[in-house]
Design a protein around this nucleic acid. Structure first.
Lengths: 371, 371
DNA sequence: CTTAGCACTCGCGGCTGTCGAGTGCTAACT
DNA sequence: AGTTAGCACTCGACAGCCGCGAGTGCTAAG
């Protein structure tokens, strides 16, 4: 029965979703008619609602409760009904200004992106640090004596990525000695990736272009280990923020939750676990990295079971062929999708521009292998 | 009436607290007699409980509910009744081992300390990074060209503290030029504190021991700003962890909370706010820095009003006259104080030893002003 | 000082009845 | 054929009530 999604049904579906997102309570036919001045009676709307339900876009917890969108309903909304918005110019300016304040500090960008996403969408945010495309490429090494048996090694990689580590020595080295070793190693390893260095290390000693001292070889081992560790943990790490913002959503407030307090708190605890451990989020990252534009994952559509009640809005950011990370928003499926999407889109392009400044600049003075 | 705190009352108080900490439900006279095989009847115990209540160590929400310790009760327990315990050797070994895994990385120590505190006490933890006593002392500067107009400045301070910042230049500089400037500035500023540098900067140009180029002067300004920023934010920053562990305490689980679910969730939200913003915690930090041993702040004893339901166990860690930070545990007043205290004590001494390795080592090759 | 005994207080779970919101259906209307 | 009024029906929310059980506080006797 019921001839599919007519124009009017689409309008009504859209209104139901808007209303539900706004109020967080099931929406009644009467409410729709009153609030949106529909020129039909509530009975008609009820018929349409029943049809939409049959089509799978809405549900009902029980007779005599308003309608609630299903995942499929949200999906249709996001795909076809939603108008594409952008952040207001004033908001854009404010955000740009904040980023300007911390220019030059990648870590701060990440943190700021997280904070801004959370604040403007009133949901939790997640940001992964930009990962170098392919592999980390070595640039130079500085060894700074902190004391005769203690050295601070500063590893600098292409793209302004820096990793520091203090290292204990077994025999004392002068500052000058350290400088020379650092310079030799820097030359030796310049522009190498992790696997390149691994290869160098296993190469027959006779073939080495440069004889390394015992000390330098042991430094090299350390560098290698640091790089491995760094690449590994960079892959996993998901920075997140805005827990508090998300928890101000009615879903998490027992007094407002339609179901009972018990559920609200379990939800809360689960949300914490998801954000802290990243479980349930991880599978989404590579997916987002691989695709253009803003990805929307709604409820149980894709992810692990514990994510059934949450939606995630993700976008890649970075510089083509150089670095890429992922940032986005996570919140209850009842989410203001247009706003989340436009915020994520804006922040990701902002971050991309900031990174491009760093990277395009750098690539100019880099040897281009194709020339 | 009631001749003060007799021996027996102390025993009973102790039992009440142990029992309440364990079960999180008000404890009844009958329970005490049964569980701890007291050789008196429950009626006698009731008389004693009444006396303890009159003395201010216990309360009850209404007639016919078991007794609950007051802040004063906990205080007396901590001060006089509790036996001083230490972590088991096995636990100590496990913890030491974990720290050994990340040797050489101060940031990791802090994170690890937070995680271990949280896990072993099942409460939230807080750790402030070790602050340099007096002021930050400059050690050296490295300038690493990332590209002709982009430089990575690595500021190294005494004690292995490193701060990095990328800086945009207006005119290109060669790597060699950067190296020379860095060396000159390093010499010029070596061992200076922030105020020392400020003084140098304002000094009459004629008096300067060294003529700086325009470029070097502008670098110097940047260094100064970075140091100011760093000192400031180091003071404020409180790292925290273990939210999830704390939330597994019955106080935060509506089904188990004696009062209602509503309260449990407000508590939860408030705990989040305290940990995220650090408000309510900040006043405790300087206090802990100024005193030896483990500090215990119980409920409303000291802190802001929103901390009324929480206790904090804090200790200083660090190296005398060199660096000091604070670490500790925060949780509901119904806390296993002996365990918290011994854990905090152990971790703080462990961290102190680790830092001492770094610092005593360093001070050996530092010029001693008294010689 | 200790104890048995007992009245008294409360919280809690279960049960009931009422109210109101909202739907679903039917029959009449355009 | 689509729309609408009308109305029965469903279900959750809420308040009130009852009885139970846990635990105290008091008293009087040992």
């Amino acid at each position: 029965m019921s001839a599919g999604l007519t124009e009017r049904r689409q309008v009504i579906l859209k209104l139901v979703i808007q209303e539900f997102v706004e109020t967080a309570t099931p929406v009644a036919s009467e409410t729709l008619v009153r609030k949106y001045r529909l020129n039909v009676s509530s009975a008609t709307v009820r018929n349409e609602l029943a049809a939409l339900e049959e089509l799978g876009y809405l549900t009902h917890l029980h007779t005599s409760a308003g309608r609630v969108p299903t995942d499929a309903g949200y999906r249709f909304f996001v795909e076809n009904l939603m108008e594409r918005t952008t952040l207001s110019l004033a908001e854009q300016r404010t955000i740009r200004h904040q980023f300007y304040q911390v220019r030059g500090e990648l870590d701060q960008w990440i943190q700021l992106a997280g904070a801004v996403l959370a604040r403007t969408t009133q949901n939790a945010s997640l940001v992964t640090p930009p990962r170098v495309a392919e592999r980390l490429r070595f640039r130079s090494l500085e060894l700074i004596g902190i004391h005769e048996l203690m050295v601070l090694a500063v590893l600098v990689f292409h793209g302004g990525i820096v990793k520091q580590q203090t290292i204990a020595l077994d025999t004392a080295r002068s500052q000058e000695e350290l400088r020379r070793s650092a310079a030799r190693l820097s030359d030796y390893l310049a522009d190498q990736t992790l696997s390149g260095i691994e290869e160098l290390l296993t190469r027959d000693p006779g073939q080495q272009p440069l004889q390394l001292s015992e000390f330098e070889r042991s430094m090299l081992e350390l560098i290698l280990r640091a790089m491995q560790l760094f690449e590994e943990q960079a892959r996993e790490q998901i920075y997140s923020d805005g827990l508090l913002e998300m928890l101000s959503q009615p879903e998490f407030i027992p007094a407002l939750a339609r179901d009972d307090a018990e559920r609200a708190v379990q939800r809360l605890r689960r949300a914490l676990e998801i954000l802290k451990s990243g479980r349930g989020l991880e599978p989404l990252i590579p997916q987002a990295l691989a695709s253009d534009g803003v990805q929307v994952i709604i409820g149980g559509e894709n992810s692990a079971d514990e994510m059934r009640e949450y939606s995630v809005v993700l976008a890649r950011y970075g510089v083509e062929n150089a670095v890429a990370g992922v940032l986005g928003v996570i919140g209850p499926t009842r989410m203001a999708y247009p706003r989340s999407i436009s915020t994520v889109r804006y922040i990701s392009s902002l971050m991309s521009n900031l990174l491009a400044e760093l990277y395009n600049a750098e690539s100019r003075d880099q040897p281009n292998p194709d020339q």
